[in-house]
Structures are given as structure tokens and as C-alpha cells.
Write a protein that binds this DNA or RNA. Structure first.
Lengths: 187, 187
DNA sequence: AATTGCACTTGACCTACATCAAGAAGCTTC
DNA sequence: GAAGCTTCTTGATGTAGGTCAAGTGCAATT
């Protein structure tokens, strides 16, 4: 449960009384490597904080997977847009490695939002971060060629190469696995 | 001032007392057609609600403009990620037509967030909408070819063609003006 | 109403990256 | 530890859509 409090307190400070109420809403969920956590067309029921493991979020189109993000230790995880809108997910959330999540259900989170302004604030601040991150990603996808996108990711998150298969990183960068491989080979 | 209350109340309900305090923070800003509202490298100082006119938000790279969104009547406007993070904007916000905005400054909005949980809630709900919309856009850009993206926009927002130059729509759809023109010609 | 300047169109050509294919190198699993 | 996956590499070929260029049309400015 500590990762939950630590993650929330990256944004706001909770009193012990608040924390007690908040903590009661979370449950641990465990997934083995490769397991689908949330499937396409399923409404995302959980907002999660990652205790252990790496997950990827992707969608499928004409039999091709396009990865749009990863989640790992200390960060949040889930199909955020499906959770927010409570509509069927276009994405799949999958455990890349053995995964332990702390999760809170939609109704519980809404209740906490209503009950504690500080949680509403947490929700807003987290979303602000998401929005800024997605804007950065959008600019990068549009302005940079395959090579520059590769270089940038390697500079910013070289550890990713250890955590997830290259094909998923390639897809995340919006290029084929072959192109990714060739960029790596070039030195 | 009515558009402000109407827009906010699409998300939350304000008591008259709350509205009085909130209303006091906004000011009217007028821009003529073509004027730059927020320039690159400038920190976005305002969050705005559109009273009149159309704006586009774009960035420049190697002398090429890439349009990433539009704003018009009753919606919000501004360089959201720069405003949120209070860091220099990578984007330009420009008045496509004669524009009247109601705007609130960063400090004032932060104060309202602190003062009124209902405003915090408004902020969260608005961001949720942004996140869902950007996720949809991302999926469309990745899964669909130029023609399908064109068809989809024409089905969803045909009015856009009357409001902004085709080159901006083309750019918004992630294609050259020439490709856009050719897609229109085909019937 | 002539001038200037952008937006749009249309055609010819080009290129970054995808796709296809086939082999090599890691992993699981029994 | 051999069999069978899946991932990764490397080469050959294909293509959607970009870029360049040369008009055409229209609206604003004089």
C-alpha cells in the first residue's frame, strides 16, 4: 500500500485521517507475464498504481498492434480514457512482465473525489501531467524522423530496452520493428 | 460574461455566490483576424473561453507549420500545456477570424482552485475531456489513411471547411495541402 | 480596374519507411 | 537438451504521400 500513498503524495499531501479513508479503497491485483489486464471493448474498471512490473497499452488495427504507452513502478496504470469516460476500451492493457497493481474502482474514486477536495486536486494534477506528456509526444511524432525519435528515446529512457521487447518500442515510436532494428545497427 | 458561466456549467453547477467570485476574475480580450494570441517561447498566461471567432493552435518545424487543433464559440482556448506547466510554449495560438475571448490569469485560476472545490472539479472534468479527445485523435492518426481521416472529419465537422483555410485542415489531419486538395477533388 | 498576394489545384517526380522474405539468435517448455 | 516458439536481423522490393513546380482563381489594396 505504500506505493499508493507515495504516488498520490507526489501531487498532494494527505492527512493521516484522509489517508486512512483513501487506503481502504485499494486492492492488490496480480498478473503473470503476458496476461491481458484490460481487453478491448471492456470498460476499464480500475485506476491503478504499479507496485511491480511493466505494462504496455496498445490497440490493434488490421491485425497490427500499435503501442501507445508503457507503465512501470511507482507510476499509474490503466486504460485512462476508457476509465474516465466509462466507455468500452479501444486499447489493450497487458502485463509485459509479472505485475502487481494496487487498484481502485471507478465508483470508489468518484466517491473520494466528492468527499475530499484534496483527491479532486490529485485527479486534476495527474491529468495535467498526462496532457503535457501527450502534447510532447504529439510534437515529437510530428516533427521528428524515425532516427531522431529513436535517439531521443534512447537518451531519455535507455532502460526501456531492458524492460520491453524491441518490437513494442518500435511500435511506440511509430515505426516498424525492421526500421527500429536498422537504426540500432547503425553506429 | 455569460459564455463563461455557460461553459463552466457544462461541467459543474455554481451557486450565485460562487459565480460572483469567479466572474470577477475574467477579462475580455479582442484580437483581429490573423493576430498572434500566444507566440512560441512565450509562457501562456491565460486560460480562455471563446465568445466569438475561431483560433488555431500550431507549431512550426523547419519552416513548416503543423496545426494540432482549433477552438471556437463556447469552447475553451489557449495553449493548454504551456499554461498548465507555465513553461515556454512550443505552439502558436492565432486568431483565424476576428476573436473575442474571456480570459483568466494563471494565479487567479489557481486561487479559485484552492478556494472552491467545485472549480477544482471543473478543472478535472475539463482535462478529462481533453485527454479522451486527444486519445481519439491519436488512434485516428495512427490507424487511418489520409482518405479515411479526410472522410471522417468531413462527416464529423463539415462546418470547419467554412471556418478555416484548407491548408490548416490539411495540416491538422497530418497531410500536405496538395494531398488534401486531391482528396477533395476525387468524387 | 489594375496590382499584389495568398489559397487552391494539378501534374511529375521522389523518398522515407513499410512490407515481404528468409535466416539467426534467444527464450520457453517438456 | 532438443523442439518449438517468438524476437531480432538483414536484404530486396513496394508505395503512400511528400515535395517541387507551374498555373489558376479570388480577395484585398492601390
Amino acid at each position: 500500500m505504500e506505493p499508493v500513498r507515495a504516488t498520490i503524495e507526489r501531487y498532494v499531501v494527505l492527512s493521516d485521517a484522509e489517508w486512512e479513508e483513501v487506503a481502504a479503497c485499494w486492492q492488490e491485483r496480480i498478473f503473470q507475464k503476458g496476461a491481458v489486464i484490460t481487453a478491448t471493448d471492456q470498460v476499464e474498471a480500475w485506476f491503478s498504481i504499479v507496485k511491480e512490473g511493466v505494462q504496455r497499452i496498445y490497440f490493434e488495427h488490421d491485425g497490427v498492434e500499435a503501442c501507445i504507452g508503457f507503465a512501470y513502478g511507482g507510476s499509474w496504470s490503466g486504460v485512462y480514457d476508457s476509465f474516465i469516460s466509462q466507455t468500452p476500451s479501444r486499447f489493450v492493457l497487458q502485463a509485459v512482465s509479472h505485475t502487481v497493481l494496487f487498484s481502485i474502482g471507478y465508483a470508489d474514486l468518484q466517491r473520494l473525489y466528492k468527499q475530499f477536495p484534496v483527491m479532486e486536486r490529485f485527479g486534476r494534477l495527474l491529468l495535467e501531467e498526462v496532457v503535457v506528456a501527450r502534447a510532447t509526444r504529439e510534437v515529437e511524432q510530428l516533427t521528428m524522423g524515425a532516427q531522431e525519435r529513436y535517439d531521443r528515446l534512447m537518451a531519455r529512457s535507455p532502460h526501456l530496452l531492458q524492460l520491453v521487447p524491441q518490437k513494442d518500442i518500435a511500435s511506440y515510436l511509430g515505426m516498424s520493428a525492421e526500421t527500429f532494428s536498422r537504426l540500432r545497427a547503425r553506429r
